[in-house]
Structure formats: structure tokens, C-alpha cells
């Protein structure tokens, strides 16, 4: 078989999913890149140049000359986009750190439980992922509102006199993101903790390390791949999150997913939204490539 060649049966088995992804994922992304180089006009579709098969090659070349980087220049000049990127990265970053602080002890507690109960506990920790994301975010509105459950409870306990304003702030968005993405973080951390050999901890203890030193020097470093995987699995989609900032955030909560949504549906500035999407993709794909390289390097070393 020639290098890179496939038998006929395999070729057709590959062609179906490959063709599907080419049509509904790769081509659309290429189109986003193309439209980000177009000008915004008031028409249908609201951008120019629009390529049509009937134009022929000459027409296409003519239109390609109309490409402009105006949408990208616009991004740099539009404080809304710059602020959206920065605040999305900040909100997703803070949420990811908090989620790690919640998820790590939980994953550790599950990993150190009776082996017979472990699989049930981890299944329970992951189960909320299967339920509707929208509904889980919605549930927090009733909790965080000024007259919501949290304020009722805190006032009944006499901890506060006036209701706390949490709903419609960035704090609510962070709580919503931590809650919604927690299963994504718990699972990889649990997997790396569960694989650890208890004999390593016993050896550390025999050599005179206290429980804290054992944790810092043995348990935590060995679980680093799980922590990194969990953090990336959460951080990347959280940066582009739309539902949570829209439902729990206030009008001053600016996140890139929401800004692009508004540019698309309300301002109908498709080139700007497309350029925003391309920049976001580049920002997010960077860490994945880095993580992949790290993984393959780690495997090579073993």
C-alpha cells in the first residue's frame, strides 16, 4: 500500500465523516475567515463581496481585491471588543481557579473513599453534566436574586440586614460558570488521583514526610496532568460562554460570546462578529496546541 494511501473500503468509510466535517465545520470556518475580510453593508447578506458561482474566476479575482482588513482594524479601535476579550479572559480565569479549588478536594475525597463506593460517587459528581445546562443556570437566578433563597437564608440567620446584590453582577457569572463546569474539572482530576499508587504516599510517610508534605511533594505533582486537563476543558469554552453572562450577568457584564451574539443578531455587523470569532479562535487554539505538544513530549519521555 502506498504511503498515505488507503484501501477502497476504508477510503469510503473515511470519506463520509470527513466530508460531513468539511461541509459543516471546515468550510464554515473558512467562510468566517473570508467574511471577516469583507465590508459591512446594509443588504442581504449584510457583507460584501459575496462570492457566487456565477461570477466565474475573473469575477472572483475582482472581488478578492475588495478584501479589507477594516473589520480587524475596527476590532483594535473598538474598545468594546478589547474590553470583551480582556474581561472574558479574566472572568474565565477567576472561575477556573475557583473551580479547581472546589473540584480538587472533592476529587481527592472521592478518590480516597472506599473503592466499592468510588464509582457511584464519581458518577454522582458527573451526573449534573447530563442535565440541561440552561436549567442549571436558571436555577441560580432564584438563588441569587435580591429576594432569592440565599438572601432569605442569610437574613433569617441574622448574618446580613439588607439583601446582597449578587444577581446581575460579574460575581453571579463566576458562580454560574464554576457551578456549570465543575463536573468537567472533577472528572480528569479524579482520574489522575485514582491512578496514583498508594505505596508512593506510604513511602513518603516512611521517609518522614508529614501528611501536608506528602500532599505537596507527591500527590499534587502527580495529579498535575489531570489539573491541567480539567482547567483547559473548562477555561476554553468558558471564555466564549454566552448563556451564563446573559442570564446571570448585568448589562455591564461584557463577555466576548455575548458581544459577538449582539453584533450578529442586533447590529447585524457580520464582518465584525466574524473577525471577533477568528481572533478568539487564535487566542484559544494556542493553549490547546501547547498542551498537545506537552502531552506528546511527556509520552516520548516515558
Amino acid at each position: 500500500m502506498p504511503r498515505g494511501g488507503l484501501a477502497r473500503g476504508r477510503l469510503s468509510a473515511l470519506a463520509i465523516p470527513y466530508g460531513w466535517l468539511a461541509l459543516f465545520f471546515l468550510a464554515p470556518l473558512a467562510l468566517v475567515a473570508k467574511i471577516s475580510l469583507s465590508k459591512s453593508i446594509i443588504a442581504q447578506p449584510p457583507y460584501e463581496p459575496a462570492f457566487r458561482a456565477s461570477d466565474g474566476l475573473a469575477g472572483w479575482l475582482e472581488k478578492a481585491r475588495m478584501f479589507s482588513v477594516a473589520a480587524y482594524r475596527g476590532l483594535g479601535e473598538d474598545p468594546l471588543y478589547l474590553e470583551s476579550y480582556l474581561s472574558s479572559l479574566a472572568i474565565a480565569g477567576v472561575s477556573t481557579l475557583l473551580a479547581l479549588l472546589v473540584a480538587y478536594p472533592l476529587a481527592l475525597a472521592i478518590a480516597r473513599s472506599d473503592p466499592k463506593r468510588r464509582s457511584l460517587l464519581i458518577a454522582l459528581a458527573v451526573a449534573p453534566f447530563w442535565t440541561s445546562f440552561l436549567i442549571r443556570v436558571y436555577a441560580w437566578i432564584a438563588i441569587l436574586k435580591d429576594e432569592g433563597f440565599l438572601n432569605h437564608a442569610l437574613m433569617a440567620l441574622g448574618l446580613i440586614d439588607a439583601p446582597l446584590t449578587i444577581y446581575a453582577t460579574n460575581v453571579a457569572v463566576v458562580i454560574g460558570i464554576v457551578y456549570s463546569y465543575l463536573p468537567f474539572v472533577v472528572l480528569p482530576i479524579y482520574n489522575s488521583l485514582e491512578k496514583q499508587d498508594a505505596a508512593l504516599r506510604e513511602a513518603a510517610a516512611d521517609l518522614g514526610a508529614g501528611p501536608l508534605a506528602t500532599f505537596w511533594k507527591v500527590t499534587l505533582p502527580l495529579s498535575a496532568p489531570g489539573v491541567i486537563a480539567g482547567a483547559l476543558l473548562m477555561f476554553i469554552p468558558a471564555v466564549g460562554e454566552f448563556v451564563i453572562p446573559d442570564l446571570l450577568g448585568g448589562s455591564d457584564t461584557i463577555m466576548i460570546g455575548r458581544t459577538m451574539w449582539n453584533d450578529f443578531f442586533e447590529n447585524r455587523d457580520w464582518p465584525a462578529a466574524s473577525a471577533g470569532a477568528i481572533v478568539l479562535l487564535i487566542l484559544l487554539v494556542g493553549p490547546i496546541v501547547w498542551f498537545e505538544r506537552r502531552q506528546t513530549k511527556g509520552q516520548g519521555a516515558q
Binding site: 465545520f25 469554552p237 466564549g240 454566552f242 460570546g257 462578529a273 484559544l284 490547546i288
Partner: peptide, 13 residues
């Protein structure tokens, strides 16, 4: 992992 907004936007286009 790509944000859903990007997938949705590119499909609409």
C-alpha cells in the same frame, strides 16, 4: 472545546 457561538455563527454563514 470551541465556543458554541463560533460554531453557530459559522453554520449560519
Amino acid at each position: 472545546v470551541i465556543p458554541e457561538v463560533i460554531l453557530g455563527l459559522s453554520l449560519l454563514l
